[in-house]
Amino acid sequence: MTAARLVVGGAVLSGGRLLAARRTAPAALAGRWELPGGKLEPGETAPGALVRELREELGVEVEPLERVPGQWPVAGGALVLQVWTARLVSGSPLPLQDHDELRWLRQGEVDSVDWLPQDRPAVHWVASRLGGSREGS
């Protein structure tokens, strides 16, 4: 049995808010919200992949901070999602790839979008810390 391929998601934080991204593909996921990120390439670390993916997908530079406890199956278990909190270092996020809308959500707003099921546990873990968090800055 082949090990599941690792996917890293970024809980991007800025000013006490969490970044949500709305997917455009595949069709089964289009219109649902996620923490942006993507698959690790051979030889990459999870934090390194997160920095690369967010640069490609959103045009921003981030600093990975802390891994969110747990991991979640994606695509019927072919992939496994790990989420890291990340501080926005530079740039303004734009939906360059895979997304058609971005939203910054405050602690009480995280349930205002339709998150993908695998992202929900990490979103709620991060949201529970948004109130007094300084996002490492």
Rank of each mutant, 00 (worst) to 15 (best):
R22E: 09
R23V: 09
R23Q: 11
T24A: 02
A25T: 06
A28W: 03
A28E: 13
L29E: 01
A30T: 08
A30L: 01
G31Q: 09
G31T: 08
W33Y: 09
E34L: 13
L35Q: 04
P36G: 09
P36Y: 02
K39C: 13
K39V: 15
L40E: 03
L40N: 07
E41F: 14
E41G: 11
E41K: 15
P42Y: 12
P42R: 10
G43W: 12
G43S: 15
E44W: 08
P47I: 00
P47G: 00
P47A: 01
P47T: 04
G48S: 08
A49Y: 03
L50A: 07
V51W: 05
R52T: 12
E53Q: 15
L54I: 03
R55Y: 09
E56S: 11
E56T: 08
E57G: 04
L58I: 09
L58K: 08
G59T: 08
G59D: 04
V60Y: 05
V60E: 02
V60A: 01
V62W: 05
L65A: 04
L65H: 06
E66F: 10
E66W: 12
E66Y: 10
E66T: 14
E66V: 14
R67W: 06
V68M: 03
V68L: 08
P69D: 11
G70K: 13
Q71T: 04
Q71Y: 09
P73G: 10
V74F: 07
V74P: 08
G76K: 08
G76R: 11
G77L: 07
G77I: 11
A78F: 02
L79Y: 14
V80L: 15
V80D: 11
L81C: 11
L81A: 14
L81E: 09
L81P: 02
W84D: 01
W84C: 00
W84G: 02
W84K: 06
T85Y: 02
A86P: 02
A86K: 01
R87E: 04
R87I: 03
L88T: 04
V89P: 00
S90Y: 00
S90Q: 13
S90F: 05
S90M: 08
G91Q: 13
G91F: 11
G91K: 10
S92G: 09
P93F: 06
P93Q: 07
P93G: 03
L94C: 11
P95F: 10
P95A: 07
P95D: 09
L96K: 14
L96T: 05
L96Y: 04
Q97D: 13
D98N: 12
H99P: 00
H99W: 07
H99V: 04
D100R: 11
D100V: 12
D100P: 11
E101N: 12
L102A: 00
L102K: 06
R103A: 15
R103Y: 10
W104Q: 08
R106M: 01
R106Q: 13
Q107W: 12
G108C: 01
E109I: 05
E109A: 13
E109Q: 15
E109C: 02
E109F: 03
V110E: 03
V110K: 00
D111Q: 14
D111I: 02
S112R: 15
S112G: 07
S112T: 14
W115P: 06
W115I: 09
L116R: 13
L116A: 14
P117L: 12
P117F: 12
Q118N: 07
D119V: 04
D119Q: 04
R120F: 01
R120M: 11
P121F: 11
P121L: 08
P121Q: 13
A122K: 06
A122F: 04
V123R: 04
H124D: 15
V126R: 00
V126T: 03
